[in-house]
Simulated assay, not measured.
Amino acid sequence: MKAVYVDDAYTVVVKEVDKPKVGKNEVLIQVKAAGICGSDIHTYKGLHPFRKPPVIIGHEIAGEVVEIGGAVTKFKVGDRVTVEPQTGCGHCEYCLTGSVNYCTGRGAPGIGSWYGAMAEYFAAPEQTVFKLPDGMDYDLGVLVEPFAVGVHAVRKAGIQVGDKVAILGAGPIGLLAMAAAKAAGATTTLVTDVMDYALEIADQMGATHSMNIMNLPDWTEEAKAAIGGDFDKVLIAAGVPGIIDQSLKLLRKGGRIVTIAMFQGTQTFDIHNLQNQEKEIIGCMTYTREDTITAIDMLMAGAVNEQAIISHKLTCEQAAEGFRLVDKKEDQSMKVLVKFEDAN
């Protein structure tokens, strides 16, 4: 089968590899579409903390079941599915309480023996697979995983009806987090970025305010002025220097920050602004099964403008171009899909 490899930093190639063998508790999926994620770009740059080249990349997928293991009971050949691409040990306190994302033995595609998902076929444990509802196409199915990230962040933030929310970073995760915040009841959503086209997409997806912060040294004050006060919650979807301190400046007393972005290096901030005003900073790591189920339901309910956020649909042979587009933000790229429609 064809598989997309990050062979080395900034090097993406398509290789012929053996089709995965299906274990007794596994499902083999013929991949129809796969998404390029921001964390994939970290691998592409050689910066990911645990997913290192050479590796079959990818974890955002949708496709059709073509084979099931002997112990599989919930799926059959022909089912249209997506995957929550993480596993736990199954017996630690975190796994037993539904927080697989906390498991110290957490597994994910592209780590160890689990091949990445950007290939013609992908094998996944039964418990990680979810049926796509009737009427949900494969492209929208690819958005389940990244949207679950946004759903999880919104749940960690405790966003509720009437909240004023700032979303810092208008990449796919930031925009999907914004959509999740709106679905949770946020009435004011301000999105920041340094790319005008990304902010235009934010507007198309329903942001109430958008702001290009390039060359705006006092942008936090301008952001607060735009909404007439402080923010209740801040979702950080851009891991740039100084962004924690900037987020604290946006918040009301008792407000909450959730970090979604992958950060490199150290962040510094004014501890007094955190402590004296009882503000909170909360980390955010992937999602839970509950978040994935919620993401599927919300996508079917129309929470995300699929046409606005999916910017490119490429063949697997064009995967290198897709990675370059996402990394360099070329051709107004947003969510780039790699298609495997002709897999056999």
Score class of each variant (00 low, 15 high):
residue 224 K to P: 13
residue 121 Y to I: 05
residue 214 M to L: 14
residue 147 F to D: 02
residue 218 D to Q: 12
residue 252 R to I: 11
residue 156 K to Y: 05
residue 221 E to Y: 06
residue 72 V to P: 02
residue 122 F to Y: 13
residue 202 A to Y: 00
residue 46 G to L: 13
residue 342 D to S: 14
residue 203 D to A: 10
residue 298 M to A: 07
residue 179 A to K: 04
residue 304 V to G: 01
residue 214 M to K: 12
residue 161 V to P: 02
residue 174 G to K: 03
residue 165 V to G: 08
residue 52 K to Y: 05
residue 202 A to L: 05
residue 114 W to G: 10
residue 42 H to N: 02
residue 216 L to C: 12
residue 149 V to E: 02
residue 329 K to Y: 03
residue 171 G to K: 01
residue 92 C to A: 02
residue 26 E to S: 04
residue 110 G to F: 09
residue 328 K to Y: 01
residue 49 P to Q: 11
residue 130 F to E: 00
residue 293 I to R: 10
residue 229 G to A: 01
residue 53 P to Q: 06
residue 255 G to Y: 09
residue 253 K to L: 09
residue 215 N to T: 12
residue 237 A to M: 10
residue 179 A to Q: 05
residue 62 A to E: 00
residue 173 I to M: 11
residue 30 Q to L: 04
residue 185 G to M: 14
residue 96 L to E: 08
residue 14 V to Q: 07
residue 177 A to C: 15
residue 328 K to A: 13
residue 285 M to D: 08
residue 341 E to T: 13
residue 28 L to T: 12
residue 294 T to R: 09
residue 259 T to L: 09
residue 263 F to T: 03
residue 282 I to A: 09
residue 119 A to D: 04
residue 190 L to T: 05
residue 333 S to H: 01
residue 79 D to V: 10
residue 154 V to H: 08
residue 212 N to M: 15
residue 243 I to T: 11
residue 71 A to W: 03
residue 301 A to W: 00
residue 201 I to C: 09
residue 331 D to M: 15
residue 65 V to L: 07
residue 36 I to A: 00
residue 225 A to L: 09
residue 280 E to M: 15
residue 9 A to W: 03
residue 61 I to A: 05
residue 206 G to E: 03
residue 253 K to M: 11
residue 69 G to H: 01
residue 335 K to R: 15
residue 27 V to A: 04
residue 213 I to E: 04
residue 136 M to W: 00
residue 80 R to T: 11
residue 68 I to C: 15
residue 258 V to R: 00
residue 160 Q to A: 12
